[in-house]
Amino acid sequence: MFPTPIQKRSRAAQLTYQSILPIALIMWLLPLLAVMLFSMRPLTDFTNGNYWGVPSSFEMFTNYGRVFFESDMPRYMINSVLITVPTVVGAVALSCMTGFALGIYKFRGNLLLFFMFIAGNFVPFQILMVPVRDLTVNMGLYDTKLGLVLFHVAFQTGFCTLFMRNFIRALPYPLIEAARVEGVSEWRIFWYVVLPLMKPAIAALAVLIFTFIWNDYFWAIVLTQGPGAQPVTAGITSFNSQFVAQYHLMSAGSIVAALPPVAMFFAMQKHFIAGLTLGAVK
């Protein structure tokens, strides 16, 4: 193990390490801790210039309550859910199939198609922006959740295919051969043999895509406009102009907007990291 395990070092080194850890963490999260502290302060603290002292009162419930009951925030949050969840389902479903086809079958152009998915996944969004916006407008889907979902599903299919194909490649191939010898049809092999084995990959992708899509901002401002369809990342800018310079409310608002992917991460940590670090180890 590298570096040398701290247990093998002197007692002094161990104590130093143990005390540096929390300090380093606090420094690392300092900007965020500041925002958390802001979100609990009353307005008067800001007008009195008491930014960093002890809050004159703890107004957590009032501040967060106002975010939920006096703004469009709940609508934006619901929009985010209604955009994110269908995208996750769509992209995972499509890529299970493309990953299966590219991972199991040998045919001409297999690798070429696979590399097309990878390459498309890396392109800058701006090269897609004008045509995709145009297409969405022409389909009558501008400023709708469906318009965003369709694009996200298509784009995420690139990354998901890369992921699924490599996962399927690592499955024991003799299993599929055996099923073929038994005369099981290809659809049934996909459904009854491969899909059950893909559960960990599906879980990992689902949490990753959930986070990516929830956090998307660029496409939200390109393809949607108002509280009718906008997700929370785009909505927060309108929220902030509603509560201009009221840092206690803006802080609370952005914490609320950030919470779902954070909760998702802490709940599904193992899958999340497995997905993110795929390929980091040979």
Binding site: L94, T98, A101, M116, F117, L135, A154
Partner: peptide, 19 residues
């Protein structure tokens, strides 16, 4: 394999490759 690929490739072509 074509049938499995079709929906994914179609989506990807329309929204990523052609644009």
């Amino acid at each position: 394999p074509l049938l499995f690929l079709l929906p994914g490739v179609l989506f990807f072509a329309v929204y990523v490759v052609i644009p």
